[in-house]
């Protein structure tokens, strides 16, 4: 993996508000990279810094080993798909897509061919003369994508481009985006607050919170080995049980002393307050383990989600049953919950 984008110690302040508090990481060439976080976490600010629309307060960004400090957006090898799409209302589809080509030294025929190719790629053939205001949300999104891709950027920046689309269209577009990125081989940097979307699309995901990067990893690693409680809660659902470290690989809490995998790199001192984290689908209902009662049962077809009250625990345990037996437990029924030894993770706050 050759790093294409290097972000080094980037901070950004708006007045007294610090949107980014020191961010350092690399993005590889040809990678589908997502930045995932709640709104206001700084992910869009970072994307705008990559585009050159915002300048970092401190730190620097380089693309293909070239320092981008002070380089305005019009001279960067990046193009962006805006969240609002920013389709120019006084132009039709063709003029919107050809907008940036006017700034390149292209002949009329070359420009026309590029526009036709872009229209085909986003499946808008025959819509070239359609007015901007006569487009649906999905079509606007495609025009915005074509307008950026036709510039042949080294890096395509996407700011929550699918958030305004309905669920079905969003899922179709996710697959299309992924296929497009693979065939073009361009680096995509994608900002989203939807963890499922990030996991569907990305080679790697950066979890952003409060202006910092919490973890950068593949979707699988993020799910299986979150570095802390915040990441664990952001990606999927997690049962968190307060506990204390009682020895190497051992925690002690309301459930007694248990062995658990320590996900953190830093070793925890004995007595440190931690959480024992358990994914709902790793928990089993059966004849052994912790005794409890079913508080709530939700039938979802491919699985059944149970909330199980366990004496001594403040919050009920969430158990995702794979519904292989086809049998549903009643509310109030006594059950026993168990899990394999490697399912428990120890997480700090």
């Amino acid at each position: 993996m050759t790093p294409q984008i290097a972000i080094q110690g980037v901070t950004k302040s708006f007045g007294s508000f610090q949107a980014l508090k020191g961010v350092t990481f690399d993005i590889a060439k040809g990678e589908f990279f997502s930045m995932l976080g709640a709104s206001g976490c700084g992910k869009t600010t970072l994307l705008r810094i990559l585009a050159g629309i915002e300048q970092p307060t401190t730190g620097r960004v380089s693309i293909d080993a070239k320092d981008m400090t002070g380089v305005p957006p019009e001279r960067r090898p990046t193009n962006m798909v805006f969240q609002s799409y920013a389709i120019f209302p006084h132009m039709n589809v063709e003029e919107n897509i050809g907008y940036g080509l006017k700034n390149l030294k292209l002949s009329r025929a070359e420009a026309a061919a590029a526009i036709a190719g872009a229209l085909e790629m986003v499946k808008l053939e025959g819509m070239a003369k359609r007015n901007a205001h006569a487009l649906s949300g999905g079509q606007r999104q495609r025009v915005a994508l074509a307008r950026a891709l036709v510039m042949r950027p080294k890096v395509l920046l996407l700011d929550e481009p699918l958030s305004a689309l309905d669920k079905k269209l969003r899922e179709d577009m996710q697959l299309e985006l992924r296929a497009m990125q693979r065939s073009l081989g361009i680096t995509f940097v994608f900002v989203t607050h939807d963890q499922e979307e990030a996991m569907t699309l990305s080679d790697r995901i950066a979890i952003v919170s409060g202006g910092r990067i919490l973890q950068i990893d593949t979707p699988k690693r993020l799910y299986d080995a979150p570095v802390n409680r915040e990441v664990a809660e952001f990606i999927g659902t997690m049962n968190l049980i307060p506990a204390r470290v009682s020895g190497p690989g051992m925690v002690e809490g309301a459930l007694g002393t248990l062995s658990a995998a320590f996900a953190d790199v830093a070793p925890r001192e004995t007595g440190a307050a931690v959480h024992l984290a358990l994914r709902p689908e790793r928990l089993r209902l059966g004849d052994e383990g912790l005794g409890g009662t079913v508080r709530e049962a939700v039938y979802l077809g491919d699985r059944i989600t149970y909330l199980v009250d366990v004496p001594g625990l403040a919050a009920p345990l969430r158990v995702a049953d794979s519904n292989r037996s086809g049998e549903m437990r009643r509310i109030g029924a006594p059950v026993r919950v168990s899990w394999p030894d490697d399912a428990g993770l120890v997480l700090g706050d």
Partner: peptide, 15 residues
């Protein structure tokens, strides 16, 4: 005028 229009124009190479 939506400010993102101007950002988009700059992003597409306009001075």
């Amino acid at each position: 005028i939506d400010r993102s229009m101007l950002e988009a124009a700059a992003d597409l190479g306009d001075s």
